[in-house]
Design a protein around this nucleic acid. Structure first.
Length: 290
RNA sequence: GGGUGCGUCGCAUAGCGGCAAUUGCACGAGACUGUAAAUCUCGCGACCUUAGGUCUACGUAGGUUCGAGUCCUACCGCACCCA
């Protein structure tokens, strides 16, 4: 069996619940496609699914102060998918990180150049214009289409070129996924999504989000993985610049904005079956598995 | 009743005679191949097909000026002070 079911959608749209439901009905296991739920100790703020009967992969696989990447994700996720298929179960890829999902369904080959902190630090000092010039020299073709005002991206492009002595643009590859896929996207009316987001955030706070963050920042400081919606907002709170209500409002705002960015990515993806109700997903899955 | 200050594009903020008007936020659209819940771009008075042009706009009404968000007068609203 080579089937792979994918469930995507913006945050708080009910992806996990749907995935669990389908996993129960169709003998499946879930692979999280979420760039924050991979971290240990970040539970409440990432709305990490709690342990249940259904096996959930790629949660809690890394320490919060460690670096994680899309390339690592892709490898781990592919392995998990194949493993599940080999055991004759249905793998369900479920999450809101568009980049991670795309890397699997389009079988991206990331250039095999791990991040090089030193080089990055060096390049970080340069101006954007300067960086663009450097990149232009290394990869004139790529320079035509790169986002020339995005420092982070320029630095990575330069890093890859230097490491392999080949233009960055030629090192990015994608192809048709070898999996037989069904993509289901959840798209709720704006108003409903907003309500669900607000509700979820309230719940998080009631569940002790503040304590979770306090523990994390006391233990690790404001590490990069805390640069996450629902976490970063508390920095000002602990500095007494914001009160709790303001933090909550900010989280809500940022989450809504994030959900729009997610949709921008998803809408670009081909072959997504957009649904609003879980029953529709179940029907689609039935047909898919026939 | 007297005095002072302030009223600018959803909100905040700049502007001190050449302005469709600065900046931030919000909002809209979009990009994305090892940080992606990250990072970045563009748009944001209306109309005309782009270059560009036309109209309507800085509390209201007048005035001075080639030209007014900017100066003057009156009025309205808000804030503070003195009575």
């Amino acid at each position: 069996m080579n089937k792979l079911l994918i469930i995507l959608g913006p945050t708080a749209s009910g992806k996990s619940d749907l995935a669990i439901k389908i996993a129960k009905l169709f003998n499946g296991e879930i692979i999280s496609a979420d760039s924050r739920q991979v971290y240990k100790e970040m539970n409440i703020g990432t709305a990490k699914p709690s342990k249940g009967k259904i096996r959930y992969h790629l949660l809690d696989i890394i320490e919060p102060n460690k670096r994680f990447s899309a390339a690592q994700y892709k490898e781990l996720a592919c392995n998990a998918i194949k493993d599940i298929q080999n055991r004759n179960k249905l793998p369900i890829l479920c999450g809101g990180t568009g980049l991670y999902i795309s890397s699997i369904i389009e079988d991206w080959q990331f250039p095999e150049v791990p991040p090089q902190e030193k080089l990055r630090e060096e390049l970080e000092k340069e101006s954007i214009e300067q960086l663009f010039k450097i990149y232009q020299k290394l990869d004139p073709e790529g320079a035509k289409s790169i986002d020339k005002k995005n420092k982070r991206r320029l630095i990575r492009a330069i890093e890859v070129c230097k490491a392999n002595n080949k233009p960055f643009w030629q090192q990015r590859k994608s192809s048709k996924s070898s999996f037989d896929t069904l993509l289901i996207g959840i798209e709720l009316p704006k108003k409903e999504l907003k309500e669900r987001i607000a509700k979820r955030i309230k719940k998080m706070i009631n569940m002790g989000l503040e304590t979770e963050i306090k523990t994390l920042k006391d233990k690790y400081g404001w590490i990069p993985s805390l640069q996450t919606i629902g976490y970063q907002e508390w920095k000002e709170y602990f500095n007494n610049k914001l009160n709790k209500k303001e933090v909550q409002d900010l989280i809500e705002l940022h989450t809504i904005q994030y959900s729009k960015r997610q949709m921008t990515w998803f809408k670009k993806m081909k072959d997504v079956q957009w649904i609003e109700k879980p029953e529709q997903a179940i029907k689609l899955t039935e047909l898919f598995l026939k």
